[in-house]
Structure formats: C-alpha cells, structure tokens
Design a protein around this nucleic acid. Structure first.
Lengths: 349, 349
DNA sequence: TTGAAAGCGTTACCAT
DNA sequence: ATGGTAACGCTTTCAA
C-alpha cells in the first residue's frame, strides 16, 4: 500500500486515482472538474486519493478532448528596439496577466523579432495552442489581425489596428490626450507649438498627431509643417526631431512630444541650444512614464491607463472566444493630463 | 474534389492528409517530423496534400504521446512594482525569446503577483505544460527552485538563487561590478564613499554590497555602517536612502547606487541639498539603463549583459532538459564600467 | 520504405 | 449517482 509519498504526479493518472479511491475514472474526472453529480462519500475518497498521489491532470490529454487550452497568446512584434526603456510593455503585461490569472488562464508570450518570424507565430496560434490572441504594437498594414480572424482565431488588438475595421480593439484616447496637451500649452501662453510625432505607420503616432492639429485649431493657431517632425518614440529619435524643428523654427516656444522618451530627448537638445525649460520653451510628453518624473525638469505628460488597457483586452478576448461569431467591439480609454514643471510658467502664466 | 481552399486546418487531421495523399497516417507523420525513411514519391504526395489542406499538427495530441511541449516557462514574481520603469525585464525577455525562437521553443510567461499565487504556478509547471522553467527576480528564501527541482522539472535561475546550491543559474558579476564602481570613485579622488544597496533579500542586493565593501578595502578605506543604506531598487527608495546617508555623513563625496533608478533618486536629493554633481559628489549607478544616459548629469554606471544572460539561461535549461540528472551549472557574466559625467572631475581628478 | 495497430490520459455520452 | 466505453489526433513499435 506504500503509494508514492511526496509524489510529484509523474505518471500518476486519472486511472491510478480511480483505483486508489475505489471508483471509476469517470467519477474522478467529475470531481476534478467540479461536476456536482457526485456522491458525498465518493467525492471524499477521490479527493483523498488525489491528495495522496499528488495527482495533476495532464493538460495535453485534456486539451485534446476539450479543444481548449486555457491559455491565450500575446503577440508583440519587436523589430526596432522600441518599447524598451519605456515601462509601457511591462505595465501592459501586468494588466493582462492580472486579469488572466483571475480567470485561470495562462499567458503565452510571442515576440516575433522580424517579419520573417510572423508566419511561425501565426502557425503556432492556428495550431490551437491558445484559445485566442492579443496583438500589440502593430506597425503599418500588418496582416496578422485579418489573417488570424480569417482562421477563426479570436483576436483583440491593443491600439487602433492599421487595417482599421473588422477586429476588436482597445485603445487609449490618443487624439483627446494630444489635444489636451496642446490646450495646456496654449493656456500656458505658448503660441508657436511644435510636435514630435510617433511613427507614421502606427495609430498611436498618427492619432496623436491628429490630436495635436485639432488642439491647435481649437486654440486658433495655424498649422505649420515645419513644426511637425516624426520620430520613432525613442529618446535619440526625439532629439533628432527637435534639432530639425529648432533649425526650421528657432522661435518655437512649446513642444508636444508623443512619448516621454522623445520629450526627454527634446529636452536635452533644447538645453544644448541654450533654451531654458520651461522659461523659454514648455514641453509636454505622453505616457507619464517614470522618466517623466525623473527628468530635469520633471515632464508634464499625458497619462494612459495601460494596466487597464491590458485587462480590458483580456475581457474582450474571452468574451469573444465564448461567443464565436460575435461582432467586433472597440473600447477607448480616457487619458489624463499630469502637470509637472516642464510646462510651468510661460510668458503669460 | 473541392477540398477546403484557404483551409485553416480546422478539423484537418493527419488522417485526412493521409487519405488525400494516398498513404498511411504513419507515413504522413514521418514526413511531418522529418523522418528520412520515406520514399521520394510518397513524400512529395504528402507535402502536396499538407499544403492543399492547410494541415497543422495538433499540439495536444502530439504532446500527449511525446511528453514534450516544446515550450518553457518563465516565472517572474512581481510583489513590488519593482522591475518597472527599468528596462531590465524587457531586455531579459528579449534575450530569452531570441534564443528560444532559434530553437523552435515557445515562451510561456508566468507572473505570480503575490506569494499566494505561487502554488498555482507550481502546479502549472508540474502538470507538464512546459519542458522546463526559468526563474527570475527571486526574493528571500524562495522555495520554488527547490520545489520544482524536487518534482523533476528542469530549472535555471536568473541571478544567484537565495538557497544557493543545487540549482543551475546564470548571474552577472555583481561583486566585481560593484567593486569596479568603487575603484572608479576612489580613482576620481573620493574618500568618503557611500552605497545605496538593493533589497537585502536579493542576491543582486547583497552581492553588490559585498562588492562595495571589497572595493573600499582594496582602496584602503574603512567601512562605516552610516555610509550604507539599503533600498528597493526604486527611485523613491534611492532618494530616501540618500537622505539618511546625508544626515549621518554630510561629508560624503562619493555614492555607489546598486541601480540607476536609485542613483537618479540620490541625484535629486543631493541637488536639493545643495550638492553639485559631480563637482562635490560623484555618483555611479548600476544597470546602464536608459535612465543613466538621460539623467542630468548622465550617470556613470555598471553595464550588465542582460540579453546575453537570458540567452545563456535558455541554453543551460535546454541542455539540462535533454540530459536529466545532470549536475547543476553556474555561469557568471562579466560587467563593464561605462563612464559618464556623474563621476567626472573629483577633487584630484 | 510502408502500414496496421496499440496506446498516450482525458472527457463525455450512454446506460444502469 | 456511477461505470463502461468510445472518441480526441498523434507517435511509435512491430511486421511485412
């Protein structure tokens, strides 16, 4: 009767449990899956046997018959070193992970590091390893959302998807946030406001640019192509963009950068050019990442609810997975202006 | 003859492929798995059928018989908001992911967000969902490494494991890096050198403290408990520690912080206290993260090869998984001093 | 080289 | 409430 003590479950099957408990496999399965149609006594015996043997269900066997994996994939293409140095990525994962854990799902992370790896990722998802996929940080006309949807795989995109339609997504209010940033600069008395935009092939880039333009219009200020420079969300990219703007419009007195990292780069360039911040030039960033609080001076920024975005993505995905063929939904989360010194004291205060 | 065009593989089994190709399931399996014992013609037919039907092997069925999952778990406990705002985490994942992709393995991310969730994670790993596990950012006497090892699950720890022995791990040379930082400060003419240490329950914390002490000893300087303050790797923690040090030893002229984030916090406090950096006080951080280059002045820091650490962890793990019962191995990666302005020009230069 | 058939560990249906 | 028994889709002997 010496059953494997400290048993790890290696080789312990439903069958073994059934034998020890003196019942059939079916009954053990019912107990394991919380099926109420089990007698008091039988249930007790089974639980004891499970405990004793250290039984853990074999996920492969289970998945083979249920056709579910109880896990979902998170796809993050990482061609440039983007997203690094920026807490966006960890925060999003944390939000996703929290919500998933609460529902007893597992997170499978897929990071195709070049476009060539995407087919591999697609195959993986299509194979049934996961019950659905979350797509993040898409560039350009990425075909993945459509491709996956066509294969019948539930998909939710983080950020407005390139293609635009037919796929559920969760996004922050990039237009509104950017608009608020510009309004704030105008309120501080700035009149020559530039923007350092994100990549033109990402909605976070184009939407913030759109918000900037709307903000200027709302404040009665004219657009000027020389005041708009696109970059790649990185600090060095932001610095480079700032140099271009400074060369074209040395009279610039306000800058809205589409990321804190770019704002930090702009800050350094402005300093090097002899401009004081915020006395001569006000700056507003985007993300409210840790670098915003760290910078000297600390950066006013647009905060986005990243964790919440992750959680909402999970909710949407699982809802969709449980109701195949349901219509795509879109959820937009609000942003918030966080005031810090980089935009204090303009000419008119 | 109209076979599902644009087929996604939904319901397409090995059997279907075999039928279309006019061979047996066994032969199809051999082709799929690259078994050389297949005739030219048969192989051609099978490949054509696979292509036509869009066949993708069912991972559950395969795993059920092979007892492998071709994926590995990465466990990152996240009790404090630690690791955030710090690119350590994404960089490590990138390294891990790169190496895994090269070997056709998948990454399953597990982030128990409280100690209560750890059993859940342990069960998951023990169930056979993965072929091995990578453990990162362990605190105190975490029992996971031992528990998993006891269950026969291949494990590799990132950073020197709390328990210390019996488990393979990859670490950077924290002692050496810290020692080099202190030596650098001494070379710059500093004589009253403080340290802001990491959490005492993490080896990255204790090892860097040890390196600091060795560095002082090597330079013929005496230890002083008032010059040592522990923090939690965060910026605010670093600031708080700096205040304590400043109160006890206002004559401090050099600071070695065990993370760039803490160094940044110390920087702000020193400034607020009227100290100039680097004229009055030199600072050296650890990580060489983006914040080091961003800070004003830019921070001298100890660079650690984080991506490489991730890749090495994978190599060790898969090697171990393929040779059950092999002895635990340890790999220590070198660090490197990166000079920036925060440690320039001391009293004697 | 190829095929037949025996599992792998579960779930779920059908009786009882 | 419980047990017997087909699947689930694949790999892997064992023969041929």
């Amino acid at each position: 009767m010496a059953v494997s003590e400290a048993g790890n479950g290696r080789g312990v099957t439903l069958d073994a449990v059934a034998r020890v408990a003196g019942v059939s496999r079916a009954t053990v399965s019912r107990v394991v899956n919380g099926n109420p149609k089990v007698g008091e006594e039988a249930k007790r015996q089974v639980e004891r046997a499970i405990e004793r043997l250290g039984y853990i269900p074999n996920p492969a066997a289970r998945s083979l018959v249920t056709r579910r994996s109880d896990s979902i994939g998170v796809v993050i293409p990482e061609p440039p070193g983007m997203l690094f140095g920026d807490p966006f990525f960890p925060r999003l994962l944390r939000g996703i992970s929290t919500e998933l854990a609460a529902r007893n799902y597992q997170l499978v992370l897929l990071m195709p590091q070049s476009p060539e790896e995407e087919p591999r990722v697609e195959r993986y998802l299509a194979a049934g390893h996961v019950d659905g996929a979350l797509l993040v940080s898409l560039h350009g006309e990425d075909a993945m959302p459509a491709a996956l949807a066509a294969r019948g795989i539930p998909v939710v995109v983080g950020g407005r998807p390139p293609g635009g339609e037919g796929v559920s997504y969760v996004d922050v209010d990039n237009v509104g946030g950017a608009k608020a940033a510009v309004a704030h600069l105008i309120r501080a008395g700035r009149r020559t406001i530039a923007t350092i935009g994100g990549p033109p092939d990402m909605s976070a880039g184009t939407d913030r640019l759109e918000g900037y333009r709307q903000g200027l219009a709302a404040g009665g200020l004219a657009l000027d192509a020389a005041l708009e420079a696109a970059a790649d969300f990185t600090q060095e990219g932001g610095a480079e963009a700032m140099r271009r703007i400074l060369a074209a419009r040395p009279d610039v007195d306000g800058v809205f950068a589409a990321s804190d990292l770019m704002a930090a780069g702009a800050l350094q360039v402005l300093r090097a050019a002899g401009r004081r911040v915020p006395e001569d030039v006000s700056i507003v960033g985007f993300d409210d990442s840790s670098i915003a609080a760290t910078a000297e001076p600390p950066l006013t920024s647009i905060r986005q609810p990243i964790e919440e975005m992750g959680r909402e993505m999970v909710r949407l995905l699982l809802e969709q997975a449980s109701r195949p063929g349901s219509v795509p939904r879109k959820v937009i989360l609000a942003t918030q202006l966080v005031r810090r010194r980089s935009s204090e004291g303009g000419p008119k205060r």
